[in-house]
Amino acid sequence: MRILIWHVHDSWTRAFVHGRHDYLLPTTADHGPDGLGRASTGEWPSAAREVSSEALADEEVDVVVLQRPHEVELAERWLGGRRPGRDLPAVYVEHSTPAGAIPDTRHPMAGGGVPIVHVTGFNDLLWDCTGTPTTVIEHGIVDPGRRYAGDIERAGMVVNDPVRRGRSVGADLIPALAEGVGADVFGRRVEGLPSCEGLRTYEDLSQEDLHDHLPRRRVYVHLSRWSSLGLSLIEAMHLGMPVVALATAETPVAVPHEAGFVTTRRDEIVPAVRHLMKDPDVAEEAGLIGRRHARRRYGLERFLDEWDDVLRWVAAH
């Protein structure tokens, strides 16, 4: 199949384009959010091909994979009047938890005739998609391999844009963690975090560099209160890192108890990290358990097989 898909979420898209199809990735002159094309870092297969927005009208497309509501109108304009869900088979991927009047938030694509794929069961449970077929395809990861060393006795985190996203990603919890055990925060736009003792930030590392530097930290900490299941958490488990995380959204079913510590108590976060830090053998064993679980539940082949089933169904209907 020839699949039109926008590069919206880097790690998810990277996994998706490792499938058995041809992938058309729109580009624009400014390489803005609607025209990023291929990733500038990381290994993407040659089947993921950039196509300028002006050239899309001449491309044959079998399925459109939508990820943002405005892509319906965008695709119709760029594809020469062919509208996803009417003239072309289409499916919508929902990456995020709902915001607003939870649990009564109506999905913006509900009732529009395009089936919705949620990336977690929690999202499927919370969004009101009445009248629209839905299914769940959990994340898949391109396995970076076990790289855990844990030789730096600090907590490691990956958080993009924590200042703007604030409490939803636990930005307010970072100072206590940094002052208690030392925290290294990796991601985009992390320099704006308030300075405090024990906090270090690392801006815009390539994925390969991140996968080398992050697992040197003794423990991975995931402080997200309200977002979909973070791929950085699943990647950290693939890397073999022990995990301390908040028991919110999908996290309680993604992180087995033996892989670290999952809690709803803010006063338990720092003690849990200290416990893993003081015993490297316990930390390493927890990381091995987490890696085995993550590879089994969030493996790439399972992810691609389930997507093949959905794409075949969408194309046939």
Rank of each mutant, 00 (worst) to 15 (best):
V158G: 01
V159I: 12
V159C: 15
P162Q: 00
V163C: 02
V163E: 01
V163S: 03
R164F: 11
R167F: 14
D172S: 14
D172F: 07
D172I: 14
L173A: 01
I174K: 13
P175T: 04
L177D: 07
A178F: 00
G182T: 09
R188P: 15
R189E: 05
G192I: 05
P194E: 10
S195E: 10
C196S: 00
R200Y: 13
T201P: 06
T201S: 05
Y202I: 14
E203T: 09
D204T: 04
L205G: 03
Q207E: 10
D209I: 11
L210H: 01
L210K: 11
H211Y: 12
H211S: 06
H211G: 05
D212C: 14
D212P: 10
D212T: 15
D212L: 15
H213G: 06
L214W: 08
P215A: 08
R216G: 11
R216S: 15
R217G: 08
R217L: 13
R218A: 13
Y220H: 13
Y220W: 11
V221H: 06
V221D: 02
H222L: 13
L223E: 05
S224D: 13
R225F: 15
S227H: 14
S228A: 12
S228P: 14
S228M: 05
L229N: 01
L231W: 04
S232G: 15
S232Q: 07
L233V: 02
I234P: 14
I234D: 05
A236R: 03
A236F: 02
A236Q: 01
M237E: 03
L239V: 08
G240V: 06
G240I: 06
M241V: 04
M241A: 04
V243E: 04
V244M: 11
V244P: 10
L246T: 11
A247H: 09
A249W: 10
P252R: 00
P252H: 06
P252W: 03
V253I: 14
V253R: 09
V253N: 05
V255F: 02
H257I: 15
H257A: 15
H257M: 06
E258C: 03
A259D: 01
A259N: 04
A259S: 04
G260N: 08
F261V: 13
V262Y: 02
R265M: 14
R265Q: 12
D267T: 11
D267C: 07
I269R: 10
V270E: 10
V270H: 10
